[in-house]
Amino acid sequence: MTTTRTGSPTPAATGRRSPRPDRAAWGFLAPFLAVFLFTFVAPIGYAVYQSLLTVERHGPMGLGEPTLGFAGLDNYTLALQQTSFIESFGRVFLFGLVQIPVMLFLAVTLALLLEHVSGRWAGVLRATYFLPYGVPGVIATILWGFLYVPGVSPISDLLGGAAPDFLAYDNVLWSLANIVIWEFTGYNMLIVVAQLRSIPQELYEAATIDGAGPWQTALRIKLPLIRPALVLTCVFSIIGTMQLFAEPLIIKLQAPAVTGDYTPNLSAYNDGFANANVYLAATKSVILAVVACALSFAFLSLVTRKQRSER
């Protein structure tokens, strides 16, 4: 995202003669920074600190009063040795690799197609596609849950014997992907629509004069121009995928295939709250944050390098 601005000059570079601009700037920043430090930076530090601690047991059968000890990197070793935790990363990677492209493809397709629909219908359809974004993930999962459960689902009623078991061991990941696609396609579509709007009309006209049809216009002119929007939506989707939590947590009740370690976030939550090991949970939170940040940065730099080499 930083890099998308590289072309623009820094407007504040000109000398400023106002009285004490430094102080005014910090004054404007202060409210945000105070909350940001308190609710973003401090918890990360706290989690790092906790990830270095461990519990020591005493008393008969170990049920006596526990004490706290310094663990060094033991928690990290323990977390990384848990195959179920490593598998959970593999699962969300797989999920993201399929779900994000499908969702973005749908979003772009719908955005491009809507360009060819007259005003009133475009509005209705856009609103329809965007509607699921207003449905909280938890509620969306409850709804789709009802559409998935065999015996209750009207979809399996309609399809009869041909209906797949949406919640079966091998299917449930993609049933979850469907919920996420349902929730966020419209949102991503809107970002693309916004970007399309910002394309100057003259470009289209020029293309039309050059004899380009709608397909060529879409592929040669529109697609490259909506790339910044796609980068943005991609980064958000990556972050969103990494923190997948509410959907598997809710669907778990109906789908035994969803384990307590289904996603990294769920795994950390279970360690911290169900298994009362906050130190291991903090460790997993730190690992998750590092991986998510690294992935987003890696994606951004990959895109930027490509962009630079194209210029």
Binding site: V278, A282, L288
Partner: peptide, 24 residues
């Protein structure tokens, strides 16, 4: 530096913060 920190904040999964935040 502030802006970069903010950007890092954008990339941070918020749910990873909830647990330490709770303990704090």
């Amino acid at each position: 530096a502030v802006f970069k920190t903010v950007l890092a904040g954008v990339l941070l999964p918020q749910t990873a913060l909830a647990l330490p935040l709770y303990l704090m």
